[in-house]
Design a protein around this nucleic acid. Structure first.
Lengths: 103, 103
DNA sequence: TGCGCATATGTCTTGACAGGCATATGCCTG
DNA sequence: CAGGCATATGCCTGTCAAGACATATGCGCA
């Protein structure tokens, strides 16, 4: 992770952009109308997301179409992995407890 | 998520604390020596982590022992889930591509 | 090539937050 | 109950980033 992925996602507006792009690729203008944020603000957030590798863009005439880049999310998932063990262990314990109660 | 989980994790020091607590429960003093951060700073980060539900503490004499609370990580994982579909799809595509090449 | 649309960038102000330091609180032991 | 240890909290300052606004750039079309 070149730039801090968590810092990038800390901004709610950026997560809303990602939620939008997850459904389908979108032009900047579409994002602006979908999210009701000013155009310069959207462009700046997109730049941050691009620099962090969360999205990439292609040009289509005067428009730029953005789409989600899955790799960064996979990196996030890797960070989460060791903690996942903690809560699955927790769930196992819970399951065993329930099994005990059934008897 | 009552407070913004991503904003909480955006601070590197807090992630270091979690990495430490993931291995084993620790007192505040142990964290201070392990991370080489001032004691007040550690306490403040712990408060943020506590308020966000990432950790909880129990008292042992004058010490407070902190430990990781898995639920918040599970919440994070849920947020990540819809994106996970994106990159597994991506991997599927890659696998199919490799299959094609083998023939 | 000049105009208009879509997007990017620069500047400024303001607010939030982290760290340093001093100090308060809680708890145990002599 | 006094003193000391472990931890929490309050105050202050510097830093950084987000949003508003103005403006620059890129691209297509008449």
């Amino acid at each position: 992770m070149p730039v801090d992925a968590f810092a990038v996602l800390a901004e709610p507006a950026r997560r809303r952009i990602l939620d939008e792009l997850r459904v389908a690729d979108r032009s900047v203008g579409e994002l602006v109308t979908a999210l009701t944020i000013s155009q310069p603000t959207v462009s700046k957030h997109l730049k941050v997301l691009r620099d962090a590798g969360f999205v990439s863009s292609r040009s289509a005439a005067q428009q730029r179409i953005y789409h989600v880049e899955p790799a960064q999310f996979a990196a996030l998932d890797e960070w989460l992995a060791p903690y996942r063990r903690l809560w699955t262990k927790h769930l196992d314990k819970l399951a065993r407890h329930l099994d005990t109660m059934e008897q």
